[in-house]
Nucleic acid binder design. Structure first.
Length: 597
RNA sequence: GGGGGCGUGGCGAAGGUGGUUAUCGCGCCGGCCUGUCAAGCCGGAGGCCGCGGGUUCAAGUCCCGUCGCUCCCGCCA
């Protein structure tokens, strides 16, 4: 170790330490040079301590020179005496603000080049530099108080979730990251095999099948902080590699799994940010969530519930809506309390928003003191009283309406709902409203390919009351499927699985998966399920998103140490990168030029 | 695949309708200063305005193309 090894961190000294000799190691966060006296803010993971160098005396020339040469982000060691600050110079913003260290010796452990951007030292704030630059020099970005906090928060959340599951008899078991491509929704990341020319591993999109096999193996309860890989376009809350707290349980029903989810989230929020989530989480069936909030991941921090307007539209004179209702489409209404003052421009912006979610348009009217005004109100003069009653409308409200097939109408107006909340500041920070969304449909009709897809995945159990009518009316079948949602963010998803091979065959048949295809793609699993598979179910928690939510960040990249950008690349190490011809040859690969190169 | 936003010294921003020394804050370099904590004050260096082409007497500004970043739709069971 270097000379001047630390005896204290930069975050632990307080008035009780006054008078003691200490050595601190850390980085120069700030220098305030007043001539004869210089203040140095020394930073490490634990905090910030002010060091004072009084170099006015002639005998201090050597120290003065050393202090004068300091630059931001030099790594240094300081030895000195802790002393109380004079009362009027205490800094209440700082954990160590009651004291300062009178610096007596300074050793520069290493120097620092001119910074590409300032390391942010303000809690909750990121550096001003654009994200691309932050990612290129991620090691510097991670020095900031905010990123340090995020990494620590992530650690504590992980430990809390582990403990919560440990105390429920779960075993942490690892599964391979090199495995075969399995039938899941996303594109696979693929790894060529050197020993098996032309063959490839796939990186897991989730350990789904393997954890089910662990249940068959009698492990009873399994969990894993599993890295998952999906080759799809990124988003603020989504990047190609991410972490799930994946778990699975034997001999349980849906309520048992939901309880574990509640325990895991409660522990993470408690240990991570000291927040007590209210238990149990409210449960909202999928259809209710869509009808009331226009989303299968409702943000419950604000009301703004959607209402059905279909029958009113059928009886009204607005031709477009009338025809929609008669055609079997749904008309949804959103009452925006007190927003009748919205300008035409503002409503048009909301309409544009609705259109991106598939709405043909956004109709509107205003609730005046003497009845409905503006927009499409002239078509509904005869029904004013009925409309006020049905929507609980009051003078001063703005009414927004969408007509479309049920799901589109709900989704589009639901998007308007969250956009309104954003504009009006209704979604408060620091408030967490969890819920479970349950009773998802098992199958979704794929219009393009004219067939049924699995809404969740093809191993999810249909609810018992649909077992006799599976084939007759797939659209009506609800599964033992559930999501956990907090503040409009989907944080977990799971299901009770099919453990009866005969039922599994029926589901495959509905999905159009032939026996041969099933055998070829995941025969090992079907084979395994011949050997006494137990009833089981589980879920997976989107761990990055959970931490993002707790940290109050807008993107999961801010809670991942070394994330990828939206083009799945890392500006720091320039990955992905080309392989040299030798490596390619060894892997039996040949790179074909792209059409445009 | 589609749509929106952004790209100006190391960083963040300002630069109506085109007009000649491209502005400000931070950082950097030099100087002054004994109580700051976003220290202050004085001075200085540093920019082919993402790139390519076009219009024009004249382009950071207008047009076309292109690249990069970012947000959203699609996609992501």
């Amino acid at each position: 170790m270097h000379e001047m090894k630390r005896t204290a961190t930069c975050g632990e000294l307080d008035a009780a330490a006054a008078g003691t000799q200490v050595t601190l190691n850390g980085w120069v966060a700030r220098i305030r040079d007043h001539g004869g006296i210089t203040f140095l803010d020394l930073r490490d993971r634990y905090g910030l301590t002010q060091v004072v160098f009084d170099v006015s005396g002639e005998a201090q020339d050597a120290l003065a020179a050393a202090v004068g040469g300091l630059k931001l982000e030099y790594c240094v060691a300081v030895q000195g005496t802790v002393r109380r600050r004079p009362p009027d110079m205490v800094n209440p913003e700082l954990a160590t603000g009651a004291i300062e260290v009178a610096g007596e010796q300074l050793v520069v452990l290493s120097t620092c080049a001119t910074l590409p951007f300032m390391v942010s030292d303000q809690a909750g704030a990121h550096t001003e530099a654009r994200e691309e630059l932050r990612l290129k020099h991620r090691y510097l970005d991670l020095r900031s108080a905010t990123m340090q906090r995020n990494l620590a928060l992530r650690h504590h959340a992980a430990q809390a979730m582990r403990e919560a599951l440990n105390s429920c008899r779960f075993l942490e078991i690892e599964t391979p990251t090199l495995m075969r491509s399995t039938p899941e929704g996303a594109r696979d990341f693929v790894v060529p095999s050197r020993l098996n020319p032309g063959s490839f591993y796939a990186l897991p999109q989730s350990p789904q099948i393997l954890k089910q096999l662990l249940m068959l193996s009698g492990c009873d309860r399994y969990y894993q902080l599993a890295r998952c890989y999906r080759d799809e376009d990124a988003r603020g809350d989504r990047q190609p590699e991410f972490t799930q707290l994946d778990f699975e349980m034997t001999f349980v029903d849906q309520d048992d799994v939901l309880e574990v989810l509640e325990a895991a989230f409660a522990a993470a929020f408690r240990d991570g940010i000291g927040h007590e989530l209210p238990l149990p989480f409210p449960r909202i069936p999928f259809h209710d969530a869509m009808n009331r909030y226009g989303s299968d991941r409702p943000d419950l921090r604000f009301e703004l519930e959607l209402r059905d307007f279909t029958e009113l539209a059928r009886a009204g004179d607005f031709g477009i809506f009338k025809k929609a209702a008669e055609r079997g489409d749904t008309v949804k209404a959103l009452r925006a309390p007190g927003l009748a003052g919205y300008s035409r421009r503002q409503v048009e912006e909301l309409e544009e928003h609705a259109k991106t979610y598939g709405a043909a348009g956004l109709a509107w009217m205003k609730c005046g003191a003497d009845g409905l005004e503006s927009g499409v109100s002239r078509f509904y003069q005869a029904q004013q009283a009925e409309i006020y009653r049905a929507l609980d409308a009051e003078p001063g409200d703005l009414l927004l309406l969408v007509a479309a097939p049920w799901r589109t109408a709900c989704t589009a107006l639901g998007a308007v709902r969250t956009e309104l909340a954003r504009r009006e500041g209704l979604a408060a920070a620091g408030v967490f409203k969890p819920c479970f969304v349950t009773d998802f449909p098992l199958f979704a009709w794929n219009e393009e390919e004219q067939r049924w897809d699995a809404e969740h995945h093809m191993f999810s159990n249909p609810q018992a009351q649909y077992l006799d009518s599976l084939e007759q009316d797939p659209a009506a079948v609800r599964g033992e499927l559930y999501d956990a949602v907090i503040n409009g963010v989907e944080l977990a998803s799971g299901s009770i699985r099919i453990h009866d091979p005969a039922l599994q065959r029926r589901v495959f048949a509905i999905l159009g998966v032939s026996e041969e295809e099933a055998a070829q793609r995941f025969g090992f699993m079907l084979d395994a399920f011949r050997y006494g598979p137990p009833p089981h179910g589980g879920a997976a928690i989107g761990f990055d998103r959970t931490v993002m939510l707790m940290a109050g960040e807008a993107t999961i990249r801010d809670v991942i140490a070394f994330p990828k950008n939206t083009w799945a690349a890392s500006p720091m190490d320039n990955s992905p990168a080309r392989l040299d011809t030798h490596q390619l040859a060894e892997l039996h690969l040949q790179v074909r030029p792209t059409a445009d190169s």
